[in-house]
């Protein structure tokens, strides 16, 4: 009896240590992307590089990066796909630079040539409008919503918790300075999480939400007709996301092939149709059109220095907190 219990305990302990064991011809992909995106990538890799098997570890980017950090001494991960540039910057020492031949096909802003990662896609900050709830004219610019008349009708995520909301705040700061930040603070209502901003507009709680293009577009594509996307005329901000090769990856060569594939035309075209995340390649106008997204050329974009955005964070958040009190 005692022995049986001991065996049971041993088995239980062993099963707690469930680390995938990687061998040649395999790539361990740590990804925060949705399962259907990952499935599409797997299909494509099976086609293009049948000798590679991909083991997928999925999760939110924060938990994945922390896991990679924890595993630093016994690396399991080969590739990380994907997270915002500013988040990647915090974990930069986990990655190693790889100059993919595909980089030349990317939009310049997403090449990240000085960083150990490469842009895969970019979020575009938009105003998400719920026409059922809005009274009067639809705002066309950031400047429009800074007006006091919008007080209580505009929402965004908490910049202290959400990196996309911080990108929005930093964009406003870039365009309209401290004055703009104070005006925004007087108008906007905050949501606890990133998703709160778009779902509350979709629910009709707010007329306008500051959010990401893809998130709003899902409702439009899903058939929620009252939802409209406005690309602010005074210029919008990109929040690019990238993938990275892990330093001391167990399978660097195969990982590089998958890296290239993730930047390839077919996969990026497929992904934008699936997720409405704007691809990093410059040659995907057809795919963008069929997804219902405007072309990059038709959007007024304000250039944001991501490095400066990161270094100004504490200052700006303090300003923000003070402005809201």
């Amino acid at each position: 009896m005692k022995k049986a219990l001991l065996n049971l305990a041993t088995a239980a302990t062993l099963s707690l240590v469930g680390i995938p064991i990687a061998t040649a011809g395999e790539v361990n992909l740590y990804t925060s992307n949705s399962e259907d995106s990952v499935a599409m990538v797997l299909d494509k890799v099976r086609e293009e590089a049948p000798d590679i098997t991909i083991n997928v570890i999925a999760g939110s980017s924060g938990t994945l990066l922390r896991r990679i950090e924890a595993e630093k001494n016994a690396n399991v991960a080969d590739l990380f796909w994907s997270s915002g540039f500013s988040t990647l910057a915090e974990f930069a020492d986990l990655f190693v630079k790889y100059d993919s031949p595909q980089v030349d096909n990317l939009l310049p802003a997403l090449r990240a040539e000085d960083d150990p990662w490469t842009g895969t896609n970019t979020h575009v900050m938009v105003l998400m409008i719920n026409e059922d709830v809005i009274e009067g004219d639809v705002p066309q610019s950031w400047e429009d919503i800074l007006n006091e008349s919008w007080k209580g009708k505009v929402t965004m995520a908490d910049p202290a918790n959400s990196s996309s909301a911080y990108a929005q705040l930093y964009g406003i700061y870039t365009l309209y300075g401290e004055e703009g930040v104070r005006k925004l603070a007087g108008v906007v209502e905050l949501q606890g999480s990133t998703s709160g901003a778009y779902s509350s507009v979709a629910q009709g709680e707010y007329a306008v939400g500051m959010t990401m293009e893809y998130a709003a577009q899902r409702y439009v594509a899903g058939g929620q007709e009252e939802i409209e996307l406005v690309y602010p005329s005074d210029g919008t901000f990109l929040s690019p996301e990238g993938l990275a090769l892990i330093e001391n990856a167990p399978h660097p060569e195969d990982a590089k092939r998958v890296y290239d594939l993730l930047l390839s035309h077919d996969i990026q075209a497929g992904l934008v149709g699936l997720t409405f995340r704007r691809p990093s390649r410059a040659d995907l106008d057809d795919a963008l059109k069929s997804s219902g997204l405007p072309l990059m050329n038709n959007i007024n974009i304000v250039d944001i220095d991501q490095g400066k955005a990161a270094s100004d964070r504490e200052m700006l958040l303090n300003l923000w907190t003070e402005a809201r009190d």
Binding site: E35, D36, A39, Y219, G222, Q224
Partner: peptide, 24 residues
């Protein structure tokens, strides 16, 4: 059946389950 966040009540599908079997 659902497209993204929007649900089409009355249209039935097994997709939600097959996705789990395939990925989760």
């Amino acid at each position: 059946y659902a497209r993204g966040p929007v649900m089409y009540w009355g249209q039935f599908t097994l997709d939600n389950y097959t996705r789990i079997l395939d990925f989760n």
